[in-house]
Amino acid sequence: MTTSPRQERRSALPLPLADQTVLSFRFTPSPRGARLARRLASCQMDAWGWRYGTPAHDAVELVAAELTANAATHGRVPGRDAELRLSREEDGHVRVEVSDARGERLPEARNAGSEEDGGRGLLLVAALAEEWGTVPRPGAPGKTVWAVVAAPGAP
């Protein structure tokens, strides 16, 4: 018996599973794609045992939201996807990585003026993460912005 194309596509989707230690998801660098990546990060944290509303869950969700929004806003290259990667570390940390195709535009945490609408996202990332940084995107043009978030009480 063969499977239908619909079943094959469904099984190829990245699903939040408790037993996987890494979740990787490519998304369109757009507000909609960034929102989907944030929701998937939130669902994966819940699947790993950090329930909705816990400090670790909320910190990872917010870091993922800021980094994916930055990829959609500042790292967009037409026709190129961005990528979210979550890794559950053995030492009680979660690593959030977001890659985009704009290697020449490196992020910088800066104090935005009170009149500006944006510009504070990386300050939030710096406050929530134990460390964060940028590296060249492996195997492709662009960069990867990463952050390591403490997730105490690892399930």
Rank of each mutant, 00 (worst) to 15 (best):
T2Y: 08
T3M: 10
P5I: 08
P5C: 03
R6D: 05
Q7M: 09
R9V: 03
R9Y: 10
R10W: 11
R10A: 05
A12M: 08
L13Y: 09
L13D: 05
L13G: 00
P14Q: 06
L17M: 02
D19H: 13
Q20F: 04
F25D: 04
F25C: 11
R26H: 14
S30D: 13
P31E: 00
R32K: 10
R32G: 13
A34Y: 07
A34D: 06
L36T: 12
L36E: 09
L36Q: 11
A37N: 05
R39E: 14
R39P: 04
L40N: 01
C43G: 13
M45R: 01
M45S: 01
D46C: 15
W48F: 04
R51K: 14
G53P: 03
P55T: 15
P55A: 05
H57F: 08
A59I: 04
V60E: 02
A65S: 11
L67M: 14
L67P: 00
A69S: 09
T73I: 11
H74K: 12
H74G: 07
G75C: 12
G75Y: 03
R76I: 10
V77K: 10
P78G: 09
P78R: 13
P78V: 07
R80P: 02
A82Q: 12
A82Y: 09
R85H: 15
S87Q: 15
R88S: 04
E90I: 05
D91T: 13
D91A: 10
H93I: 03
V94A: 00
R95I: 01
S99M: 07
R105M: 13
L106T: 08
P107G: 11
E108T: 09
A109L: 08
N111V: 13
A112E: 10
A112I: 11
A112T: 09
G113L: 14
S114I: 15
E115M: 14
E116H: 12
G121W: 02
L122Q: 15
L123C: 03
L124K: 01
A127V: 07
L128H: 00
A129W: 00
E130T: 08
G133F: 09
T134K: 04
V135M: 13
P136T: 01
P136S: 05
T144D: 02
W146D: 03
W146C: 01
V148E: 05
A151L: 09
A154L: 02
A154E: 03
A154H: 04
